[in-house]
Amino acid sequence: MEMRMQIDPELVNKLINSLPYPISTDDLIQRARQFGVSDQILGMLEHLPKQTFNSPQDVQNLVGGLSNLPNLGNLGGLGDLFKR
C-alpha cells in the first residue's frame, strides 16, 4: 500500500519564504515545527544535511533533491514543488 503525504504547497512556500536567512538546518526544523507543518515534512527536513541556508533557493534546491532518496518513501510530490 502506497502512503501519500498530504502537502499544502502554499504552506511550505510560506514557510520557506518567511525564514530569516541565513538559517541553520536545526533552526529551519524548529521554525517548521512552530509553523505547524506535518510530521512527514518534519521527518523529511530532518534528513537535510547540517548546513547554513543563505536563501529560500538553497532550501528549495536541497529539498527538491530529497524526493529521489528511496529511504524516504513517497514524498507526495514535495520535491516537485521546488522544480520550477
Score class of each variant (00 low, 15 high):
E2F: 00
E2W: 00
M3Q: 03
M3L: 06
M5I: 13
Q6V: 15
I7G: 07
P9S: 13
P9C: 10
E10K: 15
L11A: 15
L11G: 06
V12E: 04
N13H: 10
K14E: 08
I16G: 04
I16E: 01
L19A: 10
P22S: 08
S24A: 14
T25N: 09
D27W: 10
D27Y: 13
D27H: 14
L28R: 05
L28F: 07
I29G: 09
I29W: 07
Q30V: 14
R31W: 07
A32P: 10
A32C: 10
A32E: 07
R33G: 09
Q34D: 15
F35P: 03
G36D: 08
S38N: 07
S38W: 12
D39W: 09
D39I: 14
I41F: 15
I41D: 01
I41A: 08
L42K: 02
G43L: 05
M44A: 11
L48Q: 02
P49N: 07
P49V: 10
Q51E: 12
Q51D: 09
T52C: 00
T52Q: 14
T52I: 14
F53N: 04
F53Y: 15
S55W: 06
S55P: 09
Q57T: 15
N61V: 10
N61D: 12
L62Y: 05
L62C: 05
L62T: 13
V63W: 03
G65Q: 10
G65E: 12
G65T: 08
N68W: 03
L69I: 08
L69Y: 03
L72N: 01
N74P: 01
L75W: 00
G76P: 04
G76F: 01
L78Y: 01
G79L: 03
L81S: 06
L81F: 06
